[in-house]
Design a protein around this nucleic acid. Structure first.
Lengths: 119, 119
DNA sequence: CGACTCGTACGATAGGCATCGTAGTACGGG
DNA sequence: CCCGTACTACGATGCCTATCGTACGAGTCG
């Protein structure tokens, strides 16, 4: 029994604090094409996107896994909102810890997309 | 010692061309602490460091493996010079493909080292 | 030549991870 | 209250990878 959990929004998800975020896991999280795509969409569309908004070519289980990797590495923040789970890029934290990193990765990804899709 | 003899030997190593370098493998290569450390030293000390110069806490076999990952992802260039294999960061190629990326990663790594090591 | 150094190749191993499928939980609406 | 939707948990699987040890090739120097 949950002892007096007040909460409708008691479904809280564990996030690393800003100080706990490490560069290597962040780079690893971004090195997966699927996750990099998610991050690009989050950066472009603002930070209130549900998991189901993303139409990834994998099953829901796998999608859950990727979002967890992103969250646990500190790249995104996830909050339940009813049945949906909203995702947002932790730009403030990342920019503070690693100035310019997110921008350069996003720019690099965009340039590469143009370069590869370019015809 | 160093005779005026031609530097190159017959032992050539396969490198991706600039156009073949992809962002995801580069990020993956940099996401390993060992390899990130190597890249930091290469960036700091110039680009003529032999593999044996690095005193990594792993065996030689593993060191060879890490250098190969870095080379095949396009992060470093390797050239034989006698028995030694000289390593150099491919800054020109990387900066052209992904402007600012290497710098921000190096800065982030340095900041994190200060933040964690404190001393 | 012979010995030594530097790095490679190959096999083995253990752990990680991306993926799936199925069963289950939380929430909101009829 | 029941059902549908959104996401999770768990187990399984196969691949990738970081690591090692040993045996080997390439080059230098006595």
């Amino acid at each position: 029994m949950t002892t007096a959990a007040p909460t409708s929004s008691s479904r809280e998800l564990p996030h690393p604090t800003r100080e706990e975020i490490r560069l290597e896991p962040v780079l690893h999280a971004l090195s997966d094409p699927m996750r990099l795509q998610v991050v690009r969409e989050l950066a472009a569309d603002g930070d209130e996107l549900s998991c189901s908004h993303f139409d990834l070519p994998v099953t829901k289980s796998t999608t859950t896994h990727h979002f967890r990797v992103l969250r646990e590495s500190g790249v995104i923040r996830q909050v339940y909102r009813g049945t949906a789970k909203m995702n947002g890029l932790r730009r403030d934290d990342l920019d503070d810890l690693f100035p310019g990193l997110v921008d350069s990765v996003l720019t690099a990804a965009a340039r590469q997309a143009v370069r590869l899709g370019g015809s």
